[in-house]
Computed example of a mutant assay.
Amino acid sequence: MIVHSLSGPSGTGKSTSAIQFAYENQIEAIIDDGLLIINGEKIAGTSAKFEKNTITAVRRAIFQDEEHRMMVLKALKEYQIQSILIIGTSDKMTKKIAKRLQLEPINYIHHIEEIRSNREIQMAKFIRNTQGKHVMPIPYRQVEQNFFKRFIQRGFDIFSKNKVKLGETTIVQPDFHQQIIYISKTVYVDLVRYLISQYRVIAKIDTVHFVMKDYHQILYITVYLASPVNYDVQDKMRGLQQLIAEQFIRHFEFEPSAIRLNIKGIV
């Protein structure tokens, strides 16, 4: 069996990327948080996200429970899998999982920074820290809903570049994820308004609209330019976009997916 591993810190989007990454690299199966997944479907195992605390969640993810381990081992043999992707928070963790499932040595070691952009990783970490959302790369119908007291919803479909559906995700908020930081949308808008008010070539702010939709945060800004226009407008507007992006990273540790500036007129 050819064994791949994908490592990265918690909340960086490994589970979100797993199905497409496996498809692109012709990998048949995935081991993620205690689950064996084939063709986007849960085949065996119990998710670590069902656990009540982080200690038991880690034990579940690395197959410390013998009954759980044997269940997945049996499925691996039954399906005669030729290639597999092991997901973990570190290379040490993926190697431990490979050993427990008799899959060592790992042939190819990958890291999340190789398959996701810095912006995507920042956004994933922001959503994890502020909303406590965890992604499971299996369909909603396969998630045992009675395990989750607080939050569970359908995620999104995953497609190949040729628009072939590869699988689905489910978004959950495990019981062990207790710390959530709430940030009101007005905070983002107030910061943008303040930054623009300090930008000399802007005479007036008409509207600032901030749309937050899972992994896409878009700013819509409408302004009036200051007269006389004896400056390079495009250059100044790009400078404003860059300023806003830098300040979002500084204060919230993520950069908006898009900052759309509309110039309504000149004052």
Score class of each variant (00 low, 15 high):
Leu73Lys: 15
Ile30Arg: 01
Glu253Phe: 13
Thr16Gly: 03
Gln217Lys: 15
His251Gln: 10
Gln179Cys: 11
Leu73Pro: 07
Gly239Thr: 02
Thr94Gln: 03
Ala245Asp: 03
Thr56Leu: 12
Arg69Gly: 08
Glu144Trp: 06
Gly155Asn: 08
Glu51Trp: 09
Ile205Ser: 10
Lys149Tyr: 06
Val201Thr: 15
Thr130Pro: 01
Ile115Met: 02
Gln82Leu: 07
Asp190Leu: 10
Thr222Trp: 05
His216Pro: 01
Pro137Tyr: 07
Arg69Lys: 15
Ile202Ser: 04
Gln217Met: 13
Lys14Arg: 07
Met136Tyr: 03
Thr207Pro: 05
Ile218Arg: 10
Lys149Asp: 13
Ile158Arg: 08
Lys42Phe: 04
Ala61Lys: 04
Gly167Lys: 09
Ile183Cys: 06
Asn162Gly: 05
Thr46His: 11
Phe156Ala: 10
Thr54Tyr: 10
Phe151Gln: 02
Met93Phe: 05
Lys125His: 12
Ile19Phe: 04
Lys96His: 08
Asp33Glu: 11
Phe50Pro: 00
Ser5Gln: 00
Asp157Met: 09
Ile127Pro: 02
Leu225Cys: 06
Lys161Asn: 14
Gln247Arg: 14
Val229Cys: 06
Pro256Trp: 00
Met1Arg: 12
Thr16Leu: 09
Arg154Lys: 15
Lys77Asp: 12
Glu113Trp: 09
Lys95Ala: 13
Ala258Leu: 09
Asp33Ile: 00
Arg100Val: 07
Phe147Thr: 08
Ile30Glu: 00
Gly155Leu: 09
Ala61Pro: 01
Ser10Tyr: 05
Ile152His: 09
His177Glu: 13
Leu85Gln: 05
Pro228Asn: 03
Asn262Pro: 00
Gln247Trp: 04
Lys49Trp: 05
Ile171Met: 06
Gln80Gly: 05
His4Asp: 10
Asp175Arg: 15
Ile115Lys: 02
Asn53Ser: 09
Leu35Trp: 05
Gln153Gly: 07
Lys133Gly: 01
Phe147Leu: 11
Phe50Ala: 07
Pro139Cys: 03
Phe159Glu: 02
His111Ala: 04
Ile205Thr: 12
Ile138Tyr: 12
Met237Gln: 10
Gln247His: 12
Glu168Gly: 06
Phe21Trp: 02
Gln122Arg: 14
Ala29Phe: 03
Ile2Glu: 14
Ile109Asn: 13
Gln102Val: 11
Phe254Met: 00
Glu253Lys: 13
Pro174Lys: 11
Ile112Arg: 03
His134Gln: 14
Arg141Leu: 09
Leu6Gln: 01
Ile2Pro: 00
Phe254Thr: 02
Gly40Trp: 01
Tyr79Thr: 11
Ile221Thr: 00
Asn53Gly: 06
Ile218Met: 04
Val208Arg: 08
Asn53Thr: 08
Ala203Pro: 05
Ser10Ala: 13
Ile87Gln: 02
Ala203Lys: 14
Asn230Ile: 15
Val201Ala: 09
Lys77Phe: 12
Val211Arg: 11
His68Met: 11
Glu104Arg: 13
Asn146Pro: 03
Met1Ile: 07
Gln153Arg: 15
Ser7Met: 03
Ile97Tyr: 07
Val223Met: 04
Lys52His: 11
Thr56Phe: 12
Phe151Met: 07
Ile158Lys: 13
Glu66Phe: 14
Arg141Asn: 12
Gln131Ala: 10
Ser47Phe: 09
Tyr224Lys: 07
Glu67Ile: 11
Leu103Ser: 04
Lys213Val: 11
Arg150His: 14
Arg100Gly: 04
Tyr182Val: 13
Arg116Cys: 02
Glu51Gly: 00
Ala44Val: 05
Glu255Gly: 04
Ile112Gln: 00
Thr207Asp: 06
Ser15Lys: 01
Gly8Leu: 01
